[in-house]
Simulated scan of single mutants.
Amino acid sequence: MTALIFCGATLGSPLSPASTTKKVRKTMNSKNAERGLELRRAMFGKETTDRQVSECGDFLKPMQAIVTEHCFGDGWQNEVIDLKWRSLLTVAMLTAAGRRHEIKIHVRGALSNGASREELQALFLHAHLYCGIPLMVDAMLAAKEVFDEIDGEQNA
C-alpha cells in the first residue's frame, strides 16, 4: 500500500496529537482515503485536490479527512446512483441549502461526471419552484462563474 500524505500526516496514522483532532477523527481508513482521493482528483482535478489535502493546516485537517474518507471514499462510492446523477442531486441539495461556495465546487464536479450545462441550467430553473427565486438566482450566478472560469482556461 502506498503511504498517503494528508495535511502532513500519513493516512492510517493519528492526524494530530491535539485532543480536539483526536475527538473528531483518530485515524483514516486507508482504503476509503485512497478511493476518496482518487474520486476527488477525477472530479476536481489532481492539482486542486492535492493542494487542498496537503496545504490544509492543522485546523482543517479533520475536515479534509472527513471529506476524503467519508464523503468521497464511502458515500460517493455507492454505485446504485451513477456519478452524474449523484452530482446533479448534490448540486440540487446545495442549491436548496444556499451553499454557494459548495455549488461552485460541485458544478465543476458535475461537469467532470458527465452533466451538461443545459442539465445544470434545467436543474436550477426547476429549483425555483421548491427553493425560491433568490436561491435559484444565486446558484445560477455561481454556476456561471464556474462556466466562465472553464471557458477562460480553455481559451488560454
Rank of each mutant, 00 (worst) to 15 (best):
K26C: 03
S13G: 11
T2H: 11
T68V: 14
P62G: 01
N29V: 02
T27S: 04
K31S: 13
F44S: 02
T68E: 08
L125I: 10
A142S: 05
S54L: 08
P17H: 01
G114F: 07
D138V: 05
A96D: 12
F59L: 14
T20N: 08
T48S: 04
D82V: 05
T2C: 10
R108Q: 09
L94A: 14
N113F: 09
V137T: 15
M43S: 03
N29L: 01
R108Y: 14
H70T: 14
W76A: 00
I81Q: 12
D58R: 00
M136Y: 04
M43N: 10
V67F: 02
E47G: 06
N155G: 11
K22V: 00
V53N: 00
V107T: 06
F44K: 09
K26S: 04
G114L: 03
I133M: 13
F147C: 06
G109M: 11
A127D: 11
T27Y: 09
Q121D: 14
I66L: 09
F72I: 03
D82M: 02
V146N: 00
S16C: 09
L83C: 07
V67L: 06
L111G: 15
P134G: 08
K144M: 11
V53G: 04
A96W: 12
E153I: 05
Q52L: 15
T21V: 13
L141K: 14
T48Q: 09
D58E: 15
K26Q: 12
A142L: 02
A143D: 08
E102C: 02
V24C: 10
T48G: 04
G12N: 06
I105H: 07
H106G: 03
V137I: 14
D138F: 05
K144L: 14
